[in-house]
């Protein structure tokens, strides 16, 4: 059993506080309730795992706030990082319409 920390119940990601390997059972607690899922990828210490399914373009929520949007559909247990998330702010590479 491996552990992640989910900062708030409305978050859809949590941070690994140990090195998680694909196939590990991962547990976390929100609002006093213990939940678990199976890791679909390696999630090293400090990296994020999805604790809810996130649709393409959906908000990534951490600290009850939006920290980016899904660049691909993301399933519970996947690693959430630059390969499947993009930022919304400071996007000099996009025109305003795209942003």
């Amino acid at each position: 059993m491996k552990a992640i920390i989910v900062m708030s119940a409305s978050d859809n990601v949590g941070n690994a506080i140990e090195d998680i390997v694909k196939g590990d059972t991962v547990a976390y607690e929100v609002d006093g309730e213990r939940r678990q899922f199976t890791a679909l990828a390696d999630i090293p210490f400090g990296f994020k795992a999805a604790v809810k399914d996130i649709a393409l373009g959906g908000d990534i929520v951490k600290y009850k706030e939006t920290v980016g949007r899904a660049a691909k559909p993301i399933r519970v247990g996947e690693c959430v990082h630059i390969h499947n998330v993009e930022g919304k702010r400071g996007r000099g590479d996009l025109t305003e319409v795209q942003a």
Partner: peptide
């Protein structure tokens, strides 16, 4: 493991 500026800022 930090992914976006927003995450870093928060």
């Amino acid at each position: 493991g930090l992914t976006t500026l927003e995450e870093k800022s928060l």
